[in-house]
Design a protein around this nucleic acid. Structure first.
Lengths: 113, 113
DNA sequence: CCGCATCCCTAAGGATACTG
DNA sequence: CAGTATCCTTAGGGATGCGG
């Protein structure tokens, strides 16, 4: 239970931080692909998601900075780069599951009129 | 566990729905004020949050459409309007708590360098 | 093949003024 | 006091082309 103003502010910032890390249009899409299908190359992700290179690159950087995915440069003819979900990304499961559950229930709730 | 493509898509949309309902810059701020301090008038919310009237009005409408807050028009001299968190807003607690927990832990994780 | 640079568009958010 | 209308600024997202 949150009791003091300071704790409240702290809690608020924690929520905003979380929203920032997994929010936006593509973070969850990319993450779920890597979790479900395993390692993917940059180009594969671009094709699978339809995200333009500029945005994809930016999103991948942010996810990597937050340690949710890892980047591996392969020394192939033209170099290729592989992205994978990290073990740490599993820490998000509780958040994601809560969101899936709430989102599904909410849809019913709203349709009720 | 999510096994089929359809379930995955469904889960993905549920997450996006949730992100849309509580995402953005102000939804959680307004909601937490109403939850913590109870009923507030439009003007009070504007002062407490620093949100401009146009945005506040829009956010409140969206929260009300999602049944997370209720609006009550009071028949006072210049009319006043009271906003309160609904019982349904409690359904978000699981999501919010998961986000608070993850956000706090994540801050530590990132500072680790 | 990866992904940055550039340019562009739309959407989110904000300041101010005004009306019921 | 509540909220709408108008105008403006900024941020998010996208298309294309080039260089490593």
């Amino acid at each position: 239970m949150v009791k003091h103003a300071k704790d409240c502010d702290d809690a608020h910032f924690a929520v905003q931080d979380t929203l920032y890390v997994i929010g936006g249009k593509w973070k969850m899409v990319i993450l779920s692909i890597l979790v479900r299908f395993g390692t993917k190359r940059f180009g594969e992700l671009a094709r699978l998601t339809g995200i333009s290179a500029r945005i994809l690159s930016k999103e991948l950087n942010e996810l990597e900075q937050n340690k949710l995915i890892s980047r591996k440069v392969c020394d192939t003819k033209p170099i290729t780069v592989e992205y994978s979900a990290t073990a740490y990304s599993k820490s998000l499961h509780e958040v994601i599951n809560a969101m899936i559950k709430w989102g599904r229930n909410h849809k019913k709730k709203i349709r009720e009129k």
